[in-house]
Every structure is written in C-alpha cells, then in structure tokens.
Nucleic acid binder design. Structure first.
Length: 919
RNA sequence: GCCCAGAUGGUGAAAUUGGUAGACACGCUAGACUUAGGAUCUAGUGCUUCGGCGUGGAGGUUCAAGUCCUCUUCUGGGCACCA
C-alpha cells in the first residue's frame, strides 16, 4: 500500500462525520475540558493559510486532552453580524443575510478539509434568531439592573426604585452619572419621564446624551476600540466627535473588578498589560476650587495633589459647561472665537496638532488653601472626556502645564525641589516639598496622603480613583445587527417582555446606511409593538453577539435560557482560549464584563470566562517580486537586476516555487505578459521576496485548499505547527513543507514495507523502547507547553531512529500512532485500523512514558579546567557527587593536568559538567 | 513620550532554564541507484588565515552566560495631550 493521503483523509473525515465521533455530551464520569477558538468572522475572502493556525493548535490540544481521558468541549461557530459583513454585502450588491450564508458555507467547506474535531452539533451563528434571542435577553437584563457599589454587583432596578421612593438617593452608592441628591418627596413629585431620565443614569444598559465617535462614511457611531488614530478601524474613514443620544453599557462600573481579576488569569503578561492600560486606573484626588464671586465651584482631578501649592492657573476643556459662567464680558469675544476654532477641528486634527493654544476666560478661582486668585483658562490639551474636563495646572511639575505657562507667560512656582523649573518642568515623583506650607519638607510619597487627608477633613474634595475606560457605546445606525428589545411610549424607553423575544430583524427594502444617521430600520414596515408603539431603530454592535457565545456552546439548543444551570455547572468556563491579540481591548474586555454581569445575577457560576488564553501570531504573506526592465517587456532575474534599470512588480505567489518563477505560467497569468521575455540566471528566473500583510492586492494570499490538494491536510497541519512557536508572527513560506511530507512518508513506511503492511508481534529491544519513551516524554511535555514545533521535531527524531533500527514491532508502533494522532489524525486513524483496531484512535489512551527505559548505562561526563573543556569521561549514570569526584580525580588525564599545580576548587554537578579550578 | 515583547548559521528555528550553542527541518555540496527526477538513499554543511572566533553592540557577575545584572542599538506590538 502506498501513502494515498487524499483517499485516507477523505475516508476518515467521512467516518468521523457518520459516527459523530466528536459529539460530546455532559458526561459526569469524566473530567471536563473546554477548548475554544475565537470564532471566525465569515468575510467574503474565505480562509487563508493564516486563519487555521490557531484552530490547528487548539485542535491538537483538544485531541490530546481527549486521549488523556477528558470529556472535551471543542465547538465552532460564526460571528456573523456586524459592520464588515454588511459592508461586504453592500459592495457586492447582496443582502447581508445571503452573503453571510454563502460565506459561512465557504468557510465550513474549508474548515472541513482540515479535519478538525469540532462538535458541529453545537454550532452557533450570531445572526440567527435562536442565538440573538439571548443577546437581546442579556441586554434586557442590563437595562433592568443598576450597579450597587456597596455590594459590588449588578442588582435589579426594582430595589433602586423602592429605595428612591423610601429615601431618595442619599443612601445610594451606585455607578451613576447622576450628580447631587434628591429626596423621596422629590422623586414622587416627578412625572414618569423625569423619573425614567433619572433611572437611565443608573441602568447598566442606558440611553445617554453623550459625545460619540461618529463616522459619516459608515453612517454609524463606533466604540472607542473601533477607532484607531482618529479613523475607523474598518475602512479607515475619518471619525468625528458628535453629541448624540445613544445606548451605552456601563462597563465602567466593572473597571476595578476587571482590573483585579486579571491577576488570576493564565494570560500572557503583555495581554494583561494591554488591558491594564486600556482600563487605565489612576489614583489621586478630586479637589474643588471655588469660583470667585460665585456660589459655583470647579471640580478637578489630579494625581499629584501634593503639588497643589504650585497651582498658578486652571484650565477647562473647550467642551466644558463651566465656560459660559466664568467668562467675563470683555473676554467673551476672544473665548467665542477660540471655541469656534476648537469645535471645527476633528478629533484627529486636535490630536495631531501639538501647537499650544488657549484663551483666558477672564474668570478666577480661589485657591482652596491659600485663598489666592487663580486665573481660569481654556485649553484644548485638556480633554472633555477624562476626569472632570478641568485641571489645576502646576507648570513647575507638569510638562504640558509648563509649556502652556511659558507660551502665555504665566508664573511658574516650584514646590518640589530638585530641578530648575524655569528651564524645564520637574515631573519627578520624589523629592522634598518646598513653598508648600502644610506639607513643606515632606517627600512626595508622604506629602500625597497628608494633603489628601487635609483636603478631606476641610471638605475641599476627596481621594479619588479615575479610570481611562469609557462606557461602551452600544448602538449602531446600521441594519445588520441585533434589534434592541426596546420600544418607546410617549418618548420613554420601555423594555419588551422577555416572552416577546427574539425580536426578529425586520425586512427592509433598502438596508444601506444614511450619512445623516437615520437608521435603516426606520424603513421597516410595522416596526412597532402589538400596541403600535415604535421600536428602537438602532441595532447592536458587532461585539454584542460575541460577548457570550462561549456560554451558548455549553447548551446551544436550549430555548428556555442562554445556558441551563446543569450545563453551565458541568462545563464551568473555558479552560483554553486561542485567538489573536487584536481583540485585547475589544472582545476580551466586553466578554469579561458581560460574564461578570451574568455572574452577578447568578446565571453563570464563574466570574471569569477564559481561564487560560494563548495568542497565536499572525501569518504574514511572503510576496514574490519580479523585475521588469524599464520600457520593455523583459524581466530580469533577481541576481542580475542591478545591471538594468528596473521596476518592481508583485507576482502571484502561486506561480512561484521556492522563489523560482514558472515562466510559462507567468505568460498566461495576465494578457499583457503574454510576450514576456526573461533574462535568466543558471537557466532559472529567481524572484525577490518581501514579507507583508497577506492580501489579495499583493498576490501573496495562499489558500489552504491548494496546499491540502498538493500535500494533504496532515502535512498542512504539521507544517503550520512546525513553522515556529505558535505565539510568534511569521511569514508563510512553503519551502520547508517537503520535509514534513517526507516525515509522514517515513512514518508510513515504518508500518508498511515494500507497500505491504508489515508490523509484527515481537518484543521490542531496549533501543527501540528508549527511542519511543524519550519521544513520548518530550511530546507530552511539549503539547502541554504549546511547543508544538519541538514536539514534531521529537517525533521526527524518533521515526529516524526507529527506521534505522528497522523497527516494526507492534508494541512500539501502536503507541507511536496514538502520539501522532493529535497532529496528523487521518494517517493515524489509517495506521490504527491497519493495526487491526475497529474503534477510532480517538478513543485510545495517550501513551505515558516510563523512565526505566530512559536510564542510560553510561553518560559522558565533560571535565573542564577553568571553564575550558579538557576531556570527556564515561561514567555510570547512577554515580553520585562523591563517586564522580573520585573518578575524575583518579583519571590519568586529570593527574596530567594537575601536574605540579594546586587544585583550588572542584565543582561537581551530577549529570552535568565537572569543573576543576586551578590556581 | 510611556509600556510590553523580541534580536541565535544561507533560511525557519532548538538549547534539559546557568553546564559541550546551532537539535530538527529547509536549502546547499558531493556521491549511489536511475532512461529520467521536483523520487529515494549515503556523507558533508556556523565562521575560520586551522591559532582560534562565534547567540545585535559595549561592559559586568561566575569555574562556566544565548540564558543573570548595567548601559546601548535596532525590530515588532500596544497606549498616547489620561492631568
């Protein structure tokens, strides 16, 4: 028999499908293990060789765990709602539902060819009503909850309303936008609209009139993580700041918890660091500065309250509502002119423009300690969206304040010794305080708590923790998303009843967005409740559907709830999550928030969803380049190109092999190259190369289907893993794939000699056992550490050794095939069945190594003098320190080396090296 | 500007975590078999002036450093007027 990989792979994929080999149920007799991939977004381009990298790794791990006796949940689905799918549909003139369906079909075909062990019975597709039912359900729960800071959890809104009716809000400590207090009488005196307006400031899903990232080209608002450098992440369209009424999620209520539980997670440090930065906790104080000749006060946030005696001016963000009050009549014209100019700048321009600008309002504050007058300025280096949108400026000890003060000639007062504050700001977080009355002489770290205590006791403010994290803007003025289960009665938002879910996405005659922001759902007919009340027109953003999909896999067909208690208690959480870093500040924050919310309400049993997370690197494209001699149709090979004046062109990597161009295919590639001529070197045309993003326009996209057609999927799987460490980004390059194919061929020949199955029931030799057990030990450890590349190397070594030994013993080969199974399951199944098994290899036990076969009779003991290797001594492997020492000292060569010299020290580390130190 | 990760042959990469650097694979060279080879097998392959030298560079700790410490250069990623 030959190694007919296509036949073998097709055969076993069919067997797995027919036998439902990978279907899992909650089996309490086995320990569970949940391996999850970040489900794909089915784009129009299909999968390229970069996509399966993580899927192959997780598949290997899932198969390994199964062989180790775990009940493994390894599901797959599609993140199908959202902006890119809709953009693709618009561009290709299709309905997003149709294009999504087609794309999913294509993805499935491609995934199936790779031979994954997914339980497809558990597939979830986020755009299907059976799934988004539970996205809407979770939203309703968030709408109907507030966050109680006293108990530190989300709590049903009824308890808040009851408290308002009894005592107003004075005893409430909640995550809220509300400022000030009201009494129960006041609450009762308000009409429904006013009451609801107040409740919105407490709900976890709430409507808010807020500054949003508005993207005119996409016709929608975007969340902060969807905006990079002032342009949309999708498509790179400009984004502007606009005040709009929007649905938001109160993610900030969970900021501290999201930060705290990060420590327990088995994620990489860099990913945790990214989330920490995104959450952006900073400790400091809020301080009130009374406004001169007014009852109002200006609230600021500072991390350096110790520098308060160095304040020489205050700055308001151009968006600040205080501006109107503090601006004097003679400054009004100047202020208006400045604000007008500031407003016309987009966020991006404001970020890029590093020139100092500002204007004096004419108004003053009183310094809370010294009672001196402090001028109030407006400056666009202060952000309206962070802290209170106002700062106390300490030019001596803050670089930005210093630049502003220098520019406008404002005094600079030193309060921390150690720098020359007239020359540059001294931002050090240590040093002695000067010119600071109460805290003079203290070091910064002691001055901070002292001054906060002082601020607190005088009622001038309080200790305060600020977060950079913003509430998530949760509405999109687009068609392709989950409809909100909210209707409006007299303009007041009301939740739909849970029994009315799912609220199906209606048909519309045109689903394209509008530049002005009227959502497409406005065109839907009868988009009202049974009673005729209008339903919310926005849809939910892409991250809504992906925030709880891992829970749905536990119980995908449940029509009573997102996940049943039994299923959730069995599967608990994701033991291993594999995906890219690009979701660090989006999906991975939102799901953690979503999960914690459901945890608070008791719907899930774990506070954190993803126990361990591995980030796979990206596979870049390896573009090939050809060099056309200018003005001709001649192409010159890489080595000769410097002799000509050339222009460089990208060429389709599929007609290049190992950088050698297939010149005939090139002529057929494009009509204008039909008559191309080639200047060859050694009879070949050698192409240049460049590592770039894998993209259609660079002709460097490699489709896994093509690789599989040529070498088979077992080779493809092994090769992707052999390319290097899973976490590392690397360019795709097929030049080494032959080596992997040869490896599988060698494996095949181990079981089949001269095309005949040839395995015998004989006792294995010590060498054979040693080779196998060494390999098992290495592969077992490597899989657990995700070092798949070195595991494969170990198996290659083993196969080479067994081939040299001409080993065809069942005892050895049976164990080897099980070990190979997670990596190359199809060939493993075939060999397993050739070995006479009637069940699939999936049900076998992963072999365990036995140290006794690894013990060597002798080992080489290197002996060095002053760090230089002098000779090697053969010693019994069980020698201890003293015996090694004795053997070394008695050796003739040692005596020769020591001849007349003094031995200063002898360092013996068993099984390592012996060092003689000679003076 | 701040934070994180990384740098090892012609190439992808290993290195039991401080112990003979370059395993394994690609590529390359030579040979064998062959009508043929993009098949298979065998041998060689870090550099070298054959003394040695070698893990981006410069120092340091150590009997011993790719691995630990200090400084530095470059590359990739994240955040960015966050008070």
């Amino acid at each position: 028999m030959k190694y007919e990989f296509h036949q073998i792979e097709e055969k076993w994929q069919k067997v797995w499908k027919e036998n439902q080999t990978y279907k899992v149920t909650e089996d309490k007799s086995k320990p569970k293990f949940y391996v999850l991939d970040m489900f794909p977004y089915p784009s129009g381009a299909g999968l390229h060789v970069g996509h399966p990298l993580g899927y192959i790794a997780s598949d290997i791990f899932a198969r390994y765990k199964r062989l180790k006796g775990f009940n493994v949940l390894h599901p797959m689905g599609y993140d199908a709602f959202g902006l890119p799918a809709e953009q693709y549909a618009i561009q290709t003139g299709q309905h997003p539902a149709d294009s999504t369906k087609k794309n999913i079909k294509r993805y499935r075909e491609q995934l199936d060819k790779i031979g994954f062990c997914f339980d497809w019975d558990r597939e979830v597709i986020t755009c299907e009503p059976e799934y988004y039912h539970w996205t809407q359900w979770a939203f309703l729960k968030m709408f109907n909850c507030w966050y109680d800071n006293k108990t530190n959890k989300a709590t049903p809104i009824e308890s808040l309303i009851a408290e308002f009716e009894a005592n107003g809000n004075q005893n409430i400590d909640a995550a809220t936008d509300l400022e000030g207090t009201f009494t129960s009488d006041e609450w009762k005196s308000w009409d429904e609209a006013k009451q609801e307006e107040t409740l919105q400031k407490f709900r976890i899903a709430f409507l808010s009139d807020t500054m949003v990232n508005w993207c005119p080209a996409l016709g929608t608002v975007l969340a902060n993580d969807e905006v990079k450098d002032g342009v949309s992440e999708r498509g790179g369209h400009p984004v502007e700041q606009k005040k709009m009424k929007q649905w938001c999620l109160r993610v900030t209520a969970y900021a501290q918890r999201l930060l705290d539980s990060l420590d327990e997670l088995g994620w990489t440090d860099s990913l945790k660091e990214m989330q920490k930065n995104w959450i952006g906790r900073s400790e400091g104080a809020t301080v009130y500065f009374p406004i001169k000749d007014s009852n109002e006060r200006m609230e600021i946030f500072t991390t350096r309250p110790d520098t308060i005696y160095g304040v020489t001016f205050m700055v308001l963000a151009p968006e600040s509502e205080l501006i109107e009050q503090v601006t004097t009549s003679d400054q009004k014209a100047a202020v208006d002119a400045y604000l007008d100019k500031a407003k016309r700048k987009t966020e991006r321009e404001r970020m890029q423009d590093k020139t100092i600008s500002g204007v004096f309002t004419g108004g003053y504050c009183k310094h809370p300690f010294t009672n001196e007058d402090i001028p109030i300025w407006i400056g666009d280096y202060v952000l309206g969206s962070y802290g209170t949108g106002a700062i106390m400026a300490v030019p001596a000890h803050d670089e930005r304040d210093w630049a502003f003060a220098k520019h406008f000639n404002i005094p600079i007062v030193e309060v921390v010794a150690g720098g020359d504050v007239q020359e540059a700001s001294h931002d050090a977080k240590s040093g002695k305080l000067v010119n600071s009355d109460l805290i003079n002489g203290l070091d910064v770290k002691d001055a901070i708590p002292k001054i906060i205590a002082e601020i607190d006791s005088r009622g001038l403010g309080s200790r305060k923790v600020n977060f950079r994290l913003r509430d998530a803007i949760f509405a999109r003025q687009r068609y392709w998303g989950e409809p909100f289960p909210i209707y409006f009665k007299d303009g007041i938002p009301k939740p739909l009843d849970e029994s009315d879910l799912p609220l199906r996405l209606p048909e519309v005659d045109a689903f394209k967005p509008t530049e002005t922001g009227e959502p497409p759902l406005g065109r839907a007919k009868n988009w009202t409740t049974k009673d005729g009340y209008p339903i919310e027109l926005s849809t939910m953003p892409g991250f809504a559907g992906s925030s709880a999909y891992y829970l749905r896999y536990m119980d995908p067909h449940n029509d009573k709830g997102l996940v049943s208690k039994e299923a959730n208690e069995y599967w608990q959480d994701v033991d291993l999550y594999i995906g890219g870093t690009e979701h660090a500040t989006g999906h991975l924050i939102y799901s953690r928030f979503w999960n914690k919310f459901l945890y608070d309400l008791g719907y899930v049993c774990k506070d954190e969803p993803f126990k361990k997370l591995v980030n796979q690197g990206m596979i870049q494209g390896r573009s090939n380049l050809v060099y056309r001699v200018k003005g001709t149709n001649q192409f010159v090979s890489l080595g000769l190109k410097d002799k000509y004046e050339t222009s460089t062109l990208h060429v389709d990597v599929n007609i290049v092999e190992n950088d050698i161009l297939d010149t005939e295919a090139f002529k057929k590639w494009r009509p204008d190259f039909k008559d191309a001529e080639f200047i060859l070197e050694d009879g070949k045309y050698v192409c240049g190369y460049a590592n770039e993003k894998m993209s259609k326009s660079l002709f460097n996209v490699v489709n896994p289907d093509d690789v599989i057609a040529k070498y088979g999927t077992d080779t493809f799987r092994l090769y992707e893993m052999f390319l290097g460490p899973i976490q590392q980004s690397k360019p795709w390059n097929t030049s080494g794939i032959e080596g992997i194919y040869r490896f599988l061929l060698k494996v095949w020949r181990l079981y089949n000699r001269d095309d005949q199955f040839n395995v015998v029931d004989e006792t294995a030799t010590a060498d054979e056992l040693k080779s196998l057990h060494k390999c098992i030990k290495k592969v077992d450890g490597d899989i657990q550490n995700f070092d798949f590349n070195t595991a494969i190397s170990a198996m290659m070594i083993c196969v080479n050794e067994l081939s040299d030994l001409k080993c065809n013993k069942r005892e050895i080969l049976e164990k080897f095939v099980v070990m190979l199974c997670p990596f190359a399951p199809h060939i493993a199944e075939e060999l397993w069945s050739l070995l006479g098994h009637t069940t699939t290899v999936t049900l076998a036990d992963f072999p365990t190594h036995d140290e006794k076969y690894l013990v060597e009779s002798n080992w080489n003991c290197p002996v060095s003098v002053n760090g230089k290797l002098k000779f090697v001594l053969d010693l019994p492997v069980d020698y201890g320190k003293a015996e090694i020492e004795k053997a070394v000292m008695e050796d003739e060569r040692t005596k020769a080396l020591l001849n007349g010299k003094n031995l200063a020290k002898l360092i013996v580390v068993p099984k390592k090296i012996v060092n003689l130190v000679i003076k």
